[in-house]
Amino acid sequence: MNKEIEEIVVKTFFIKGIQQRTLFELTSNKYRHSRIARITDPLDCFRKDLIFEIPKPNSDPEVIEKILRKQGAGKMCYVMTSIISDMDGKELPLAEVLEKLIWCGMPFIISCIPNKLVYFQGEQSYGPPQRFILKR
Rank of each mutant, 00 (worst) to 15 (best):
G72D: 09
F14K: 04
T12P: 03
E6D: 11
F13D: 01
P57M: 06
I51N: 00
K3G: 03
L26W: 03
I54N: 02
Q20E: 15
E53V: 00
I39A: 05
Y78P: 09
V9G: 08
E62N: 13
M1F: 12
S59C: 08
M76G: 07
C45A: 14
K66D: 14
L50I: 07
I15R: 15
L68P: 05
I67M: 11
L23K: 01
I18M: 08
F13K: 02
D60F: 00
R35D: 04
F24C: 00
K70T: 13
K3P: 09
I67D: 01
D60C: 02
L43E: 13
K11E: 03
D49V: 04
I18R: 08
V10I: 14
S34I: 11
K30P: 00
Q19I: 01
I5T: 14
E6Y: 02
C45K: 06
D44I: 10
E6K: 05
T81M: 02
N29D: 13
M76I: 14
N29F: 00
N2L: 12
Q19P: 02
I67T: 12
K11W: 02
N2K: 14
I67N: 01
E4F: 09
I51G: 06
D49P: 05
Y31M: 09
L43F: 15
K56C: 09
A73G: 10
G17A: 10
L43W: 14
N29C: 00
M80W: 04
Q71L: 14
I39N: 02
S34C: 01
V10E: 03
Q20P: 03
K66Y: 07
E65Y: 02
I15D: 05
L50M: 14
C77L: 08
L43T: 15
S28H: 05
G72M: 10
M1Y: 13
I54Y: 03
T22W: 00
L50P: 05
I5G: 05
E65D: 12
I51M: 09
E7A: 13
K66M: 12
E4P: 07
M80F: 02
E62G: 07
T40D: 13
V79Q: 08
A73F: 10
H33W: 07
Y31L: 08
E65V: 06
I54E: 01
L50T: 10
N2M: 10
D49W: 00
F24E: 10
V9S: 06
E6C: 11
R38W: 06
R21L: 10
C77I: 05
P61R: 10
I15F: 00
S59M: 11
I64M: 01
D60V: 03
R38L: 12
D60T: 00
T27R: 11
N2R: 13
F14R: 04
V79P: 06
G17V: 00
M1T: 13
R21A: 12
M76W: 02
R47L: 09
K75Y: 11
S59H: 06
I18E: 02
I39Q: 01
C77N: 04
S28K: 06
